[in-house]
């Protein structure tokens, strides 16, 4: 898929993820027969998630990516609780016990629950599903818990949590990058429009340097995500998410500071970006936790994994 196609998809995503129904985007993708392409072409999923982040929208795209061939309308993937990186399910014999959170839990009929030894689709009606407002109510999160006996509603049992978690980490990284871009746009707009001491705020070098630093982090995140494809191992997936999350956090923090008191009003809307960034950062391990985890892993291995390939960038430049 080329850059022009990706832009078209991103524009459609911006439209579809602001609507009330979180399944609109995934439904259109599935109806258009794009589910296999979505799994095969990480650039497509990345572009859609960045667009979703930029508009602070929501959809069940992450559920579609994580569930893969097991996806159906009404299915949501249960994610580990914030602060945890363990699979949300525990299997003992035929019983699966679960405690985790699901996003866009309104309208969920089934939940895909990963445990260390596989995954199972469970009926929502057989679980406790408690909607929460909390940090980011627009995501419509719910705490999903309970224990279910018996076989799955559908889908395969042999799923590897590590692989799914790595895929989710990169996906969240893309959405965080979009959110970071939005935060930077908001900060620049406010700083450019507002006058104090007889001049635009943005002419102050301290402000310009802070915005430039955010840009540098976002550009780095973009490059790392573009090189990360569908993860490529734990270290690379965690790195992609951590770099993107740090960029988004820096952008959100800069925007909160640089929008002054306006940024703290409900009406201004910046809080939506701030909430979403923190929430997505926390899912599957936040940037700080991942950074420590990566360092510990590298020390345990006594070396670094194979670095990002140079060859594919050269190919791309030759084509362009």
């Amino acid at each position: 898929m080329d850059a022009a196609d990706l832009d078209l998809f991103a524009a459609a995503t911006e439209r579809l993820t602001t609507m009330a129904d979180p399944e609109l985007l995934t439904a259109e993708l599935v109806d258009a027969g794009l589910a296999p392409e979505l799994a095969a072409d990480p650039a497509l999923a990345g572009a859609l998630l960045q667009a979703q982040g930029r508009i602070v929208g929501r959809s069940t795209l992450l559920d579609l990516l994580m569930a893969g061939p097991d996806h159906r309308p009404g299915l949501r993937v249960v994610l580990p609780m914030p602060g945890s990186r363990q699979p949300p399910g525990v299997r003992a014999g035929k019983t699966v016990a679960v405690r985790g959170i699901a996003l866009s839990a309104d309208g969920a009929t089934h939940f895909l629950v990963h445990s260390g030894s596989g995954a199972r689709v469970l009926l929502a009606a057989e679980l406790s599903v408690v909607p929460v407002e909390a940090w980011d109510p627009e995501l419509r999160p719910a705490i999903v818990s309970g224990a279910v006996d018996g076989g799955p509603a559908w889908g395969s049992l042999a799923r590897d949590w590590e692989t799914v978690a790595e895929l989710a980490a990169v996906a969240l990284g893309h959405e965080l990058l979009g959110l970071g871009r939005r935060a930077l746009e908001i900060a620049i707009a406010h700083q450019s429009d507002r006058y104090q001491f007889g001049r635009r705020l943005v002419v102050a070098q301290s402000v310009r340097h802070r915005l430039a630093d955010v840009e540098v982090e976002l550009v780095a995140a973009e490059a790392v995500l573009a090189a990360s494809g569908n993860a490529g191992g734990e270290v690379r997936a965690h790195t992609a998410k951590a770099v993107a999350a740090r960029a988004a956090l820096a952008a959100a923090a800069a925007a909160q500071q640089l929008c002054g008191a306006m940024g703290f009003t409900t009406e201004y809307g910046l809080h939506r970006v701030v909430r979403r960034v923190r929430m997505l950062d926390a899912l599957g391990g936040n940037a700080e936790e991942l950074q420590l985890e990566i360092g510990s892993l590298l020390a345990a291995q006594g070396g670094l994994p194979a670095p990002i390939e140079l060859a594919e960038a050269l190919e791309e430049a030759r084509r362009a």
Binding site: V219, A220, A221, A223, V224, A226, A227, V235, T239, A242, V243, R246, L290, Q291, L292, E293, I294, G295, S296, L298, A299, L304, P307, I308, E309, L310, A313, L314, E316, A317
Partner: peptide, 24 residues
């Protein structure tokens, strides 16, 4: 030290990912 190694790895991967497109 582990956190410092992690931070270095993130910074270094950022540089490499960006620099490879520039070199190309």
């Amino acid at each position: 030290a582990h956190a410092a190694i992690g931070a270095a790895y993130l910074a270094l991967t950022s540089l490499r990912a960006r620099s490879r497109t520039t070199v190309a």
